[in-house]
Write a protein that binds this DNA or RNA. Structure first.
Lengths: 169, 169
DNA sequence: GTGTTACTGTTCGGGCCCGAACGATTGCCA
DNA sequence: TGGCAATCGTTCGGGCCCGAACAGTAACAC
């Protein structure tokens, strides 16, 4: 129940506010829906799958990457997850403290640090991922297969545009 | 630049990890793309449009709601923005301190508090929204119109499923 | 009237999140 | 070989974010 107001009411109110200015409503609805959907999906997956194991969304994403690729340098982890290196430092600290991952300093370049799952972390992911994927599937069940493909392509396009226009890149 | 690895490599690594178990790859890609796209869009809009005005994403969403509907009770604001009441308390405090919004206690029910924009807040939104909408439009430019509609519908569907399955609702 | 129950917004503790500044390390090149 | 720019991960300060616990208020049964 995100809104008390219908789309039509929102559009009318918006148009009233901006006066004669043109408003791109499809774009506005798409971006707002995007943000709401991501939040709802994250909350749902966190509450139903992750919280029972006392795992954070971001913590899970980090572990998922390490599970797939066995070992990754921290800067690549941060970029893949979509968080800053500063944030990853904190998340890493939490996961290391729980004994789920290990930090492995590079022997050849002393600036670099790699991360990898501990045995305990491996076990947790092997148990958790199938459950997580089932919950993901539930979220998109009901959407026609072709639309899921279109959805994913559109989302990737947005990522591309947002990141190439970003001055920090 | 999100990934060092291609989709195909990721699927192969995932399949190797889960063994003979079935994995819903389209669902996994959709959910991950959803989260990345939302983050990228939020970061982009924050950095290009909001930051110059020293506004937070969440703070902007709150002000946008109040701009449209003139006045809203806090619980409805929190629900519409998709944050908890606890979070809204902090965001409200920040915006009030900057003189952008006002708190208006209800006369009939002393538990309720409404929010509304100050004159300063009205001016800021009138200036900011057209700029914000332009940036939104840029993000979805390049996606065919029909696909934008499909995108928005799919996203709303995900919101519905996620929130109805949520025990907190 | 008076429990009792439900609902409001707030506070608290802890984790995530970022940009900016920083010390350490490396590579390049003059 | 020595200086210098680039890159690494960390730290710092401040804001967002949530669930749980809470005090205040309202509604309702009895």
């Amino acid at each position: 129940m995100p809104d008390q107001h219908s789309l039509e009411e929102t559009e009318r109110a918006t148009q009233e506010r901006v006066g004669r200015l043109a408003v791109d409503f499809p774009a506005a609805h798409a971006i707002m829906s995007l943000y709401r959907a991501a939040n709802a999906a994250r909350s749902h997956l966190t509450n139903t799958v992750l919280r029972p194991h006392d795992l954070t969304w971001t913590g899970f994403l980090v572990m998922w990457l390490l599970w797939l690729w066995r070992s990754m340098e921290t800067r690549h982890v941060a970029e893949s997850v979509g968080i800053s290196k500063a944030t990853l430092t904190g998340v890493t600290k939490t996961l290391v403290a729980r004994g789920l991952i290990d930090r492995v300093p590079s022997a050849v370049d002393r600036r670099l640090v790699s991360l990898q799952l501990s045995d305990k972390g491996e076990e947790l992911m092997a148990e958790l991922y199938p459950e997580f994927n089932r919950a993901e599937a539930e979220l998109v069940a009901g959407i026609p297969g072709a639309d899921i493909t279109t959805l994913t392509e559109s989302l990737r396009h947005i990522v591309t545009v947002a990141e190439e226009h970003d001055p920090t890149t």
